[in-house]
Design a protein around this nucleic acid. Structure first.
Length: 587
RNA sequence: UGGGGCGUCGCCAAGUGGUAAGGCACCGGUUUUUGGUACCGGCAUCCGUAGGUUCGAAUCCUCCCGCCCCAGCCA
């Protein structure tokens, strides 16, 4: 663990934490926090922050709090705190008993506000919202002081108490910090600390009608919890001066927390903002917060991504301060890399083309032994794969006029059926009216049965090499025949019909603006797919590699009874497809 | 135009005065009964630009250019 940390590159935040430990700034303690506002579903950008905050705590023997930053009653909801908790747990992090709510501090926060008033560092301002905006000035022009800035401490105390007591309407008064209306930092121009909102809060109900603003609540919540390192995203850099001002002016007992900022995650071909995500869900562009095309953690989970792959992704992208947009390919690499080592391989035909093997006996069925894992994955397990006279192959695995370099089936050509025999295409049968290829007549070569040579040598078929841990490929036969291509197939009478959902990127462009940039083909539902029976009968995993196609996840919600629905998590890399695409559209 | 940040390979990202790590992507090749995986090799004479300091600079100084954030009673 320690060693792993040392060999890994340390980001600038970890360097700061190490320095603070070294100088004993907090008595060696490290307490971070993940502080979401429960007003939307967490997405992969939150995952970056979760991995950072919980990760630092884990690396330095500290703890990480989960704190709901729930200071705005009009947008927050318990369903979002549940979604947040679910996602953090799914990622594998644990806040133990450190679940907090800023709303639990409302009483303390109020007391701090009173203290600030008594120190003559805050005042009740009775300007209208419109006036406050005007008085604030602009980025290039200084603001001007509120006429209410010189109210007496007593009057401020009285007004603030009456604000709390509900004596005023929304917007009549606000509490402001007494700082500097000419500050070059807009955040320091007498920022609002409290506003009146006669609104029902999802946790405190109607107990309060004044609510603290983010800048006031956040730093003090950190302080109350004993946070040492308050890590947030870049857009809060301007708020740091105010964070420091509040904690310093209150003359709190030290040590106190300090804020550090890092760049939030952006991913191309998707959107991350709450507003955009909400729009997609509410306008029904997607099926819900857990739509597998969404970058929400609920969607990513539903798609079939593993938590490990997301954590690896978050570690692979690094932590820095420059705004950056990570390529989607990076995420896809992480999930392939994870699943490649974990998941059983099975055969599934998605766009079936029927083949009749003319020289294979009509009623014969062979149960082939097929290893679940390839020779280079050190896991054990096999299943029985039924083979018979009528099978389905993928439509794309046959070409009437094969292009150069095509290794699959063509008239008069041979191809290997994975785990089975080499077949040769003898005849193409087309629909008389449409000309569409409806069936292929083939012959098989009995001597090409996969594994024959091993059997002949008396070796039990899927035995792992004791030294390398590798399984033998099911390749060897004793025909001496060599074919370039191997394709997947399924026995027509044994296959199970399943639904497969093919997901593609949600947007057509790298930096999408709105619904006009959506990819109309982001979801393709295939209802006529055939999968080998072991998947329905054995269910050895929730995720599979459908050989030569990709990684798939049994949809936990729509797979009901004996109906199976699979979501494509990510396709396999496809160098042939890429070459073909390049040939057609060289650029 | 004020203030706060950031600019190193197509995308991330190390580097903090001693002569450009790594990952992804991409391009070759080997292995392969997944056109997958694995493996081997290639991929920034250059660090936004222009000057300067220095024996020596991506790293220090100066100018300029570009991008992001701040004018919610959102967080």
């Amino acid at each position: 663990m320690e060693e792993k940390l040392n060999e890994r590159h340390k980001d600038f935040l970890r360097l700061i934490v190490e320095e603070d430990i070294r100088t004993n700034k907090y008595g060696g303690k490290v307490i971070t926090r993940f502080p979401p506002e429960p007003n939307g579903f967490p997405h992969i950008g939150h995952a970056k922050s979760i991995c950072l905050n919980f990760g630092i705590a884990k690396d330095y023997n500290g703890v990480c709090h989960l704190r709901m930053d729930d200071t705005n009653p009009t947008t927050e909801d318990m369903k979002y705190v549940e979604a947040l908790k679910d996602s953090i747990k799914w990622l594998g992090f644990d806040w133990n008993d450190k679940l907090f709510f800023a709303s639990d501090y409302f009483g303390k926060l109020y007391d701090y506000a009173v203290r600030l008033i008594k120190m003559d560092k805050a005042y009740v301002c009775s300007l209208s919202e419109e006036e406050i905006r005007k008085y604030r000035g602009t980025v290039t022009q200084a603001g001007k002081e509120s006429p209410y800035k010189n109210r007496s401490v007593e009057e401020n105390l009285d007004l603030f108490a009456r604000m709390k007591a509900g004596k005023f309407q929304n917007g009549e008064h606000v509490l402001r910090a007494k700082i500097d209306m000419a500050s070059p930092n807009m955040k320091m121009r007498d920022p609002l600390l409290y506003r009146i909102k006669h609104a029902h809060h999802y946790r405190t109900g109607n107990e309060w009608c004044i609510y603290p603003m983010y800048d006031f609540a956040h730093c003090l919540s950190d302080y109350i919890e004993g946070i040492t390192h308050s890590i947030c995203t870049l857009e809060f850099e301007n708020n740091r001066e105010l964070y420091d001002w509040i904690l310093d002016e209150l003359e709190l007992e030290l040590p106190r927390p300090y804020q550090f900022e890092f760049a939030r995650l952006s991913l191309n071909y998707t959107v991350m903002s709450k507003r955009r995500l909400l729009e997609l869900v509410e306008q029904k562009y997607v099926s819900g917060w857990d739509d597998p095309r969404l970058p929400t953690l609920a969607g990513i989970k539903r798609r079939g991504y593993t938590p490990e792959s997301i954590i690896n992704f978050c570690e692979s992208i690094g932590i820095a301060k420059s705004n950056s947009t990570v390529d989607f390919a990076q995420l896809e690499f992480c999930i392939r890399d994870d699943l490649n080592q974990k998941v059983p391989r099975v055969l599934c035909v998605m766009k079936p083309l029927k083949i009749v093997i003319e020289n294979y006996p009509e009623n014969k069925v062979e149960m082939l032994d097929a290893p679940y894992y390839p020779h280079d994955v050190p896991k054990e397990g096999t299943r029985k794969l039924p083979f018979s006279r009528e099978i389905y192959i993928e439509q794309s695995d046959f070409m009437e006029n094969p292009s150069k370099g095509y290794f699959r089936l063509a008239l008069g050509q041979e191809v290997r059926l994975r785990h089975a025999y080499i077949i040769k295409c003898e005849q193409v049968i087309k629909d008389e009216t449409t000309g569409e290829i409806v069936e292929l007549r083939c012959t098989y070569d009995e001597s090409t049965k996969s594994g024959l040579r091993a059997e002949a040598a008396g070796v039990a078929l899927p035995t792992r090499n004791a030294v390398t841990g590798e399984q033998p490929s099911s390749g060897a036969d004793n025909s001496g025949k060599k074919v370039k291509g191997t394709i997947h197939w399924v026995s027509a009478q044994h296959a199970k019909k399943v639904e497969v959902r093919i997901y593609d990127r949600l947007y057509l462009v790298e930096n999408p603006d709105g619904p006009e940039d959506l990819n109309p083909d982001s979801l393709q539902v295939l209802t006529d797919c055939y999968i080998e029976p072991s998947v329905a009968e054995e269910k050895i995993d929730d995720r599979y590699q459908f050989e030569r196609q990709g990684y798939f996840y049994r949809d936990p919600i729509n797979s009901v009874g004996d109906k199976l629905v699979f979501n494509r998590i990510v396709p396999l890399k496809d160098s042939w497809g890429k070459a073909m695409a390049k040939q057609q559209n060289p650029s």
